[in-house]
Every structure is written in C-alpha cells, then in structure tokens.
C-alpha cells in the first residue's frame, strides 16, 4: 500500500492510527477514550496537548497496568457504562478499533455523541478488497491480519464497511466533519474524496463526527 509522505512516525509503543486520531483532537480539551487499552493515547494527549484525557477499558489486567503507569483509567464496558456520564461531559469521545466488538454499536455511538460534543471513531473496514476477494474465491469467512480470528471465536461481532458507516451516520443525523481511510499501519491513504475507493482499499476507517445542529440537546 502506498505510503503518503508527511505522515509522522511516533513512539514505538503507540499505534500509528492513534497518532492520526490525536491529530483530530484540539489541545487543552476534555477527552474520554473508550477501550483505551494501556492508555497510550491518553498519555500522548496529556503530554503533548495538555488534554484532560481519561480512559475506559474492559480488560482488568490492562487497566491495572495503565493505572500503575499513573493514567486515569477505569475498568468498564462501553456497552453498559457510558449511560452513567452526564451530557456534554467531554469535548471528544474516542472509540478506536472497538466499534466492531461492542454489542450495540448504534447505541454506543448515540451515547458517545450525548456525553461528548464530538466523537472520533476508527474501525477495521470489512469492505477492503482482500476480504471481498477471499469471500468470493473461497466462499469462506475471510481471514487477514486484522480479521485474524475464526468466525466462531472472533470478538468482532459487528463488522462493517466504510460505506456502511456513512449510511449509519446519515440515518442517525451525525455530521461527518472529517474522515479518512488508512492502511493497517495507520498511514493515511489518498482516497479522501472517493468513499467507494476508500471502501475498497482502506484497511481501516477513521471518522470525526458531530451531532448535526438542531439535534443538540439543551445545555
């Protein structure tokens, strides 16, 4: 996959797509990272952008590691724990490569845009040509580096394509402020204007969403 010049490499323990996400976040803002893992992104946002960044992570061992590293992370479940937060508690709510693994993706997105002014969502794109090709040729569920588990044991129970996500955003009335497709390593790919091509060649989709004006709940 062609690499776009100008993409910066980051600390080796931070996934490159997290750097793409970080580039969408304004400095000094309040951020909630859902499925934050070891907290690499919240640490990055705190150190480089002075954000008040916090995390939720479902895996207790990973949470313990993050907290022991001094990061504000709580053990919790995106499907059940977002409803406790008040409206507009955050400027950004981030869901990085987790949407496909939650039980109710639409509800999680609604909660994200209730508690946050903006949502940043990244997910592996099930519309990528290699997946389509495998399904067409072998007639079996595709297996790739991203989709690496058998269908009966994958945690990724809600795969979607970049086009699917556009359709959902429209149905839910979300404004897509920014979007891009990237390869597995998180390098930005040049299909910015053509969702159909992005859906074919992008290994993951990254979206910056806002509630459409008029749907803003009262402060």
């Amino acid at each position: 996959m062609a690499k776009v010049p100008g993409v910066r490499y980051v600390a080796k323990n931070m996934r490159v797509d997290l750097e793409l996400i970080a580039s969408m976040v304004a400095p000094g803002t309040r951020v909630l990272d859902i499925g934050c893992g070891d907290g690499a992104l919240i640490e990055h946002l705190f150190r480089t952008k002075g954000c008040d960044a916090r995390g939720i992570e479902i895996d207790m061992a990973v949470v313990t590691r993050a907290v022991a590293h001094g990061l504000p992370v709580m053990q919790g479940d995106a499907d059940t724990d977002l409803s406790h937060y008040p409206d507009h508690a955050f400027d950004y709510v981030i869901l990085s490569r987790t949407l496909q693994a939650v039980e109710r993706p639409r509800e999680v997105l609604r909660q994200m845009l209730r508690i946050g002014t903006r949502a940043i969502v990244s997910f592996p794109n099930f519309g990528h040509w290699s997946l389509r090709w495998q399904l067409l040729v072998t007639g079996r569920m595709p297996m790739t580096k991203t989709w690496a588990r058998m269908w009966y044991e994958t945690p990724n129970i809600h795969p979607c394509t970049i086009r699917d996500f556009f359709v959902l955003c429209q149905a839910e009335g979300y404004t897509v402020e920014q979007w891009l497709a990237a390869d597995e390593a998180g390098h930005r790919a040049p299909w910015r204007r053509w969702p159909m091509l992005a859906n074919l060649f992008g290994e993951q989709g990254l979206f910056l969403l806002r509630r459409s004006s008029g749907e803003e709940p009262p402060h």
Binding site: V63, Y85, P86
Partner: peptide, 10 residues
C-alpha cells in the same frame, strides 16, 4: 461518572 469526575478503578 455521573459528575464526570476523574477516576481510576481497578
């Protein structure tokens, strides 16, 4: 969470 406090929980 209801008051958006800064919390860690393990």
């Amino acid at each position: 969470n209801q008051v958006a406090a800064n919390i860690s929980f393990v």
